[in-house]
Write a protein that binds this DNA or RNA. Structure first.
Lengths: 206, 206
DNA sequence: TCATTAAGTGAACGGTCGTGCACTTTTTCG
DNA sequence: CGAAAAAGTGCACGACCGTTCACTTAATGA
């Protein structure tokens, strides 16, 4: 009796805990460097496992990547979508969404990346299950934005002739530009510009 | 005397022609799959050379990538920036710029990619000469946009209180969203939405 | 507690990568 | 034409990759 599982880990076997640690480490790597940058050896070092020890948790590297992506979706729902849904429909929800979305990052340093935007560049030209899963997640994301914009129309926060899909397109555009300016150009004014663009977008929809 | 150089290639040695073919092939690969997807062997096959034969033209793979990126910059200037500069300053120049920008692609199929946006995702977290070169090119790009917007103010096409840098941010945002929707989501309405966003952007600046 | 099962290890495989080198072939030019 | 220089080849190397497998170690539950 040396290292009994802590009470806080109740109901989780050792394997489950290790698996969770792997997926979390994978998400961190994928968010900054991409899903293709995930390497069994590198990830094994990060969680203090041997290559084969880590590999044994998954049937293939692709399966590992798929589960990392799914973990990213879960975390995004928890940290961004959920808080927005808890807000009043219409404009307030949209504002909460953007706030949490811009704070959605994973790395330890101050320039965290987005696993979805990284993966989008990696799989926009490649076929296979990973691309399919990514496309599905981004389709869902767009549809959520469209729905959120449609609610603004419904709640009379927007004019009735506003096209929710066009609104969603332009909102996502701003978030992408934010990511680009922060991460590549290291531009500290990016959040301010993103919010300003957002305000203009809202204003022209009213 | 079997295969004399054609007259059209006058002034170019065989080595120069091979080099140009390599850079062009490299640009095609980099535009769709990224600069990191460039592999000596793959590129050698594409231009019918042996690995070492191709390698002999460059001092390292990194140097090859740098030259491919530079080739991309040159092509972008020729095909996008140039035609815009030939147009009247202000709004007409901006419209020409966007038109050619959206047509800026390199692949054979209908979903050509942009070497800069691909590379942005690849190097936004990595240090080194490649990132430096990319950042410089994108900095220049942004400054060109800022200048083009500033000319709109100067020509009284825009209100005098319009911030050119904010305008540039939002314009680039639309182009990024275009790329994303075309390539990942395979959305044929992307050009229409991009132009609609552009019109709204212009309208709110007048 | 102790046998059963789960979790993790280490070495090895075939494959691809960038790079170096000795060599052959082709181009170039006096 | 023929020699010098340029261009291209073939092979090998060390490093890292994903994956397999026989094995050891640790966790689990009756």
């Amino acid at each position: 009796m040396m290292y009994p599982p802590k009470a806080s880990m109740e109901g989780q076997s050792k394997g489950d805990r290790t698996r969770a640690a792997i997926l979390q480490a994978g998400l961190e790597v994928a968010s900054t460097e991409g899903l293709e940058a995930i390497t069994i050896g590198r990830l094994a070092d990060r969680v203090n496992l041997s290559k084969s020890g880590l590999f044994a948790h998954f049937s293939s590297k692709e399966q590992l990547q798929l589960e990392v992506l799914q973990h990213g979706r879960n975390e995004f729902v928890t940290r961004v979508i959920g808080p927005a849904l808890a807000e009043t429909r219409g404009e307030p929800r949209l504002r909460t969404l953007l706030k949490n979305w811009l704070g959605w990052n994973w790395s330890n340093d101050s320039r965290g990346g987005c696993i979805f935007l990284q993966a989008a560049a990696e799989y926009d030209d490649r076929e296979g299950p990973l691309r399919d899963a990514l496309v599905e997640s981004q389709h869902d994301m767009v549809e959520f934005l469209v729905g959120a914009a449609a609610l603004c129309v419904e709640e009379k926060h927007f004019r009735s002739d506003i096209d929710p899909r066009q609104f969603a397109f332009e909102l996502y555009a701003l978030v992408m530009a934010h990511h680009f300016h922060i991460r590549l150009l290291d531009d500290p004014t990016a959040p301010k510009r993103t919010r300003k663009g957002f305000e203009r977008l809202l204003e022209s929809a009213k």
